[in-house]
């Protein structure tokens, strides 16, 4: 029994297509970890498999000692995993406040301060200004903040973020970076998928590079700086 997420030998399939081949990773309590890789290498599928949104998966996924394989997404959510999908999937007809309130859920693990609308608005001041605005009328960056805020309202112990800064303007990326750094300070564990190495290096301590559905590199992001050939081969930077 240990706190945090442990994934070992995770295989996932869409129909008859084998997508993930023996993914292994871990996220300790309070840690911020990044999945790096280009488009279509299996980052999103890894997050979805952890969350139970890919039904056909084998291997070991455990969180705080609970086996997640075989559990449905709602059961996994109730064990303390929050998920912010890259499609965001906010409710276009509900207001910003409604979008947040709809996701209220008691925390599965004690120790973290419970989230309230006020705390979300303190973290994302822009959302406070948009309180009564319908979700469909937000910009991409505002929608992303709302997606993260909605996941936080479920009081997760681990937050899964799928490409949180994808397609956002540089100034918005900077803002989100600061906000995610602030989130780390609250003691929340974060696992996020990212293509943007600069953003990843700002917020994550460790990274897993994924290519072709396999983990090709695991280690500290500082150490990655010393390995240009790894970066060139898997990230094309």
């Amino acid at each position: 029994m240990s706190d945090g997420l442990e994934v070992a030998d995770l295989n996932a399939y869409y129909g008859t297509s084998h997508i993930l081949f023996g993914i292994a990773l871990e996220v300790r309590a309070g840690e911020c970890v990044c999945l790096l890789g280009r488009n279509g290498v299996g980052k999103s599928t890894t997050l979805k498999s952890i969350m139970g949104l890919v039904a056909h998966r084998t291997g070991t996924v455990s969180f705080d000692g609970h086996d997640l394989i075989g559990l449905a997404p709602h059961q996994i959510a109730r064990l303390g995993l929050g998920y912010a999908p890259d499609e965001r999937l906010i409710f276009p007809d509900l207001t910003v406040r409604d979008n947040l309130e709809i996701a209220v859920k008691p925390a599965a693990r004690a120790g973290l301060e419970p989230w309230t609308i006020e705390r979300i608005y303190a973290l994302f001041p822009k959302l406070a200004e948009l309180d009564g605005r319908a979700g469909g009328y937000l910009s991409g960056g505002e929608q992303q903040m709302l997606t993260v805020g909605r996941a936080l309202m479920g009081n997760p112990a681990l937050l899964l973020l799928d490409e949180p800064v994808e397609g956002l303007a540089p100034v918005v990326v900077q803002e989100l970076t600061r906000q995610i750094e602030h989130l780390k300070d609250t003691g929340l564990a974060i696992l996020f998928a990212e293509q943007n190495l600069a953003f990843a290096a700002r917020v994550a301590e460790r990274a897993y590079i994924i290519e072709g559905g396999r983990v090709r590199y695991a280690g500290r992001l500082e150490d990655l700086e010393q390995q240009p050939e790894v970066k060139r081969q898997y990230l094309m930077v």
């Binding site: 969350m51 139970g52 949104l53 449905a72 997404p73 709602h74 059961q75 996994i76 959510a77 109730r78 998920y83 999908p85 999937l89 709809i102 996701a103 859920k105 909605r150 479920g154």
Partner: peptide, 18 residues
Amino acid sequence: RLLRDNPARTAFLGIDVR
């Protein structure tokens, strides 16, 4: 209505869809 519009979103918000 929530699960009608998007069952996956409903599930990851913690609701037992079935």
